[in-house]
């Protein structure tokens, strides 16, 4: 089958972002379980009586069909799968944060089913009222792992010696865990208790210090992989917290 005629049917996906295109259409960025992040043109989706208006909702599981071999596909069909309450309040803002991470870090058309399942799980937790930071940390970790930036949190880089719960360490993005005293020019705010690293490795967020420190560690790593691109959703979230 030629690339031009390639047709995908029955793809489970979430809409990450939509932007207006021409008078009546939208260009969607979707995250499909078996196809990764895909750009799709939805013709006529902005017409006043378009049935797509109530289907193309963010944070809701959809079933999509599209065709085309270029960078932007053409949507053939969209159905709302349901089963997930709409996000509300703070959960909605956190949902935008997850979407922005996927939009900025995930390359196009690279399937990541495990990450998709993690994203769906995080949305379900947010939709049921959890705004627990632990959900965000789990998602950020699985995102970095799927992108190939897996974190080695329980071993010291180079020597492979185990991280001790009572030690103090720093984390260097391309290298891994180092002793805090060996990390040149690391501010004290970017050093982490060994226990934090071990808890993060085990997804155990019961300790308030682990929660606070793992947030800083993940922020440092995500900023590194974003290569200086600012996160709009974080800025808006911070401004809203100040109201």
């Amino acid at each position: 089958m030629s690339a031009q005629r390639q047709r995908i049917d029955g793809a489970t996906a979430f809409l990450l972002h939509a932007r207006p295109f021409s008078e009546t259409s939208l260009v969607l960025e979707v995250f499909a379980r078996d196809h990764g992040r895909v750009a799709i043109l939805a013709r006529g989706a902005r017409r006043p009586r378009s049935a797509l208006r109530t289907v193309l909702l963010g944070f809701q599981p959809l079933e999509l069909a599209w065709f085309g071999g270029g960078e932007v596909k053409t949507m053939a069909r969209a159905e709302w799968l349901g089963g997930l309450p709409l996000l509300m309040g703070k959960g909605l803002l956190l949902g935008y944060y997850l979407n922005e991470l996927l939009l900025k870090l995930l390359p196009r058309e690279d399937a990541h089913p495990a990450l998709f399942d993690g994203y769906a799980g995080a949305l379900a937790a947010l939709a049921h009222g959890a705004t627990e930071p632990a959900e965000l940390r789990r998602f950020e970790k699985s995102l970095l792992r799927e992108l190939g930036y897996g974190l080695a949190l329980d071993r010291i880089a180079g020597s492979g010696a185990p991280v001790r719960a009572d030690g103090v360490y720093a984390y260097q993005p391309e290298r891994g865990v180092v002793q805090a005293r060996e990390a040149d020019g690391v501010s004290p705010s970017l050093t982490f208790a060994g226990k934090t690293l071990l808890d993060l490795a085990a997804d155990d967020y019961g300790d308030p210090r682990t929660l606070a420190e793992s947030k800083l560690l993940m922020r440092q790593l995500i900023a590194h992989y974003l290569g200086g691109q600012p996160l709009q959703s974080r800025r808006v979230f911070m401004e809203l917290q100040e109201l």
Partner: peptide, 15 residues
């Protein structure tokens, strides 16, 4: 309206 992914926040909307 707020649109975090497009950088529209409370400042842009003059809340």
């Amino acid at each position: 309206r707020l649109s975090p992914l497009d950088g529209i926040g409370p400042r842009e909307l003059a809340f």
